[in-house]
Design a protein around this nucleic acid. Structure first.
Lengths: 140, 140
DNA sequence: TGACATTTGCAACAAAGTTGCAATCTCCAT
DNA sequence: ATGGAGATTGCAACTTTGTTGCAAATGTCA
């Protein structure tokens, strides 16, 4: 059986409400990362804008989704895999891809972020790697 | 002699105006990347908010500055080095560092972004790498 | 089922970004 | 050096995005 929004909520010890379920299902049904606006367009008829903000924030806090910064000044969100949380600390280690043609953002789960060596004095906690280019569908 | 804002404008074939010079000088005097707001705080008494938006956009278009996406939903800008533009195409190849403690964002010019191999079908144009951690000054 | 805590929607607000237009400034040819 | 064409700026009005407080509604668990 396919994973449902409700299952994820139980796992994270969150109360199960219509908005949370629906928003999670939108993520589960999407193959790409979503901006706040994408979600708003899909369910602003059902839920208040404020609820969407708060729900996304809750999901971030619980490590259910992670945020992907993009150069276009629009943060997008995508579901985390289970392995994403290591000993209470959220940890993404895959590369994100942003298509310049269609604007889609996706997690390349199979591409691991390479390590880098920082200059003396800097301590490293997290690496974020976003690749721009053309995706499969948009390839000329 | 130190490079001045006006020199950069000439190089880029932009007309020399007070706002462009001043904003470039702010970048030249700063050792870290700046958000729109940082610039606004420094010169909103002299220039209109709209002018700052338009000036930053012009600099981006001409490849004078590059934008750095951060997880906090605040794009920052930093001056490009001359080598940044290769055959008309802007090309950053260094890592950016964002300090979780003081929030400073800097270009680590000496740390080159490692290459990654994308899955079949994807074409790569640009890579953006932002490292989070603690900077020299904030180190415990 | 019922009480309690959590979540939601509403309203009002604050901040960030955009657009059109008239006034001003730059640049270049004379 | 000057004048005019074209680019740039400031202003005003507006849209979009994000935040906060509070009362009503909903979910959880005994």
């Amino acid at each position: 059986m396919k994973k449902q929004g409700a299952d994820i909520l139980k796992q994270s010890a969150l109360s199960i409400t219509a908005s949370r379920k629906d928003i999670l299902d939108i993520f589960l049904a999407s193959s790409s990362a979503l901006a706040h606006q994408d979600i708003e367009l899909k369910c602003s008829d059902k839920f208040d804008r404020v609820t969407i903000y708060r729900t996304l924030q809750t999901f971030l806090d619980k490590g259910i989704i992670h945020s992907i910064p993009t150069t276009e000044n629009a943060v997008k969100y995508a579901l985390c895999k289970d392995e994403c949380i290591v000993s209470g600390h959220h940890h993404d280690n895959h590369v994100h891809f942003l298509c310049d043609a269609c604007g889609i953002t996706i997690c390349l789960e199979e591409v691991v972020v390479p390590q880098v060596k920082l200059p003396k004095g800097y301590s490293l906690k997290d690496i974020n790697m976003v690749v721009n280019g053309t995706c499969k569908k948009c390839k000329a």
